[in-house]
Structures are given as structure tokens and as C-alpha cells.
């Protein structure tokens, strides 16, 4: 019961971060502030979701797998954000083909 309540609370908190990050991605004016909103919010949001799901795991193996997922997404997200920011810094904002 306590585990289920904690899961629901943590998942909802995580979803708030995801919603905030998505709103930032859609509303912010330039690449850097969008990246700022997206990566920070997604990292913390996913962390909360993973933490919430850990209370539903069936054993330590599942908990470690969830932790691994979060760490991998952290590494990949950080690198992707860095590369987008660096590309924008050296080449300017992305231009579409149209």
C-alpha cells in the first residue's frame, strides 16, 4: 500500500517535470534555453519515474536494471544536448530546407 502510494506520487511528480520540459521545448525562444528546459526536466523527470517504478520491482535485479536505464539516458541525453549546443555555437541556428 505504502509502496503503491509512493509510486503514484513519484510518477506524478515525474510527469510534472516532463510536462514542464515539453512546454519549455515548445515555448522557449532559442536553442540554448530549449535545451536547458528539455534536458534538465527530462533527467529529473525520468529519475523520478524510475524511482517510482523501483517500488514495483520484483527483485534487486529489476531495480538495478531500472537504475541502469536512468544512468544510460543521463549519459546519452547529456551528450546529445552538448552536441546540439556546440553545433549551434559554431554554425548558428538550424536552418530548414524550405
Amino acid at each position: 500500500m505504502i509502496a503503491n502510494t509512493l509510486t503514484v506520487l513519484l510518477l506524478l511528480a515525474g510527469l510534472v517535470f516532463f510536462a514542464a520540459g515539453t512546454a519549455g521545448l515548445l515555448r522557449f525562444p532559442d536553442v540554448y534555453s530549449r535545451l536547458h528546459a528539455l534536458t534538465k526536466a527530462d533527467n529529473v523527470g525520468l529519475g523520478l519515474v524510475v524511482l517510482g517504478l523501483m517500488f514495483q520491482a520484483s527483485g534487486p535485479a529489476d531495480i538495478l536494471k531500472l537504475l541502469l536505464i536512468w544512468l544510460l539516458v543521463l549519459a546519452a541525453g547529456t551528450t546529445a544536448a552538448h552536441m546540439v549546443a556546440q553545433r549551434t555555437w559554431t554554425h548558428g541556428e538550424f536552418e530548414s530546407d524550405r
Binding site: 549519459a75 546519452a76 552536441m83
Partner: peptide, 14 residues
């Protein structure tokens, strides 16, 4: 290729 140590470092991990 992106300059800087971030991408090679991440790849060594990934």
C-alpha cells in the same frame, strides 16, 4: 565530427 572530449568519452562508456 564534434570537437571536444564529450562524445569520445561517452562512446567509451556506451
Amino acid at each position: 565530427p564534434a570537437p571536444g572530449p564529450i562524445l569520445p568519452g561517452t562512446l567509451r562508456l556506451l
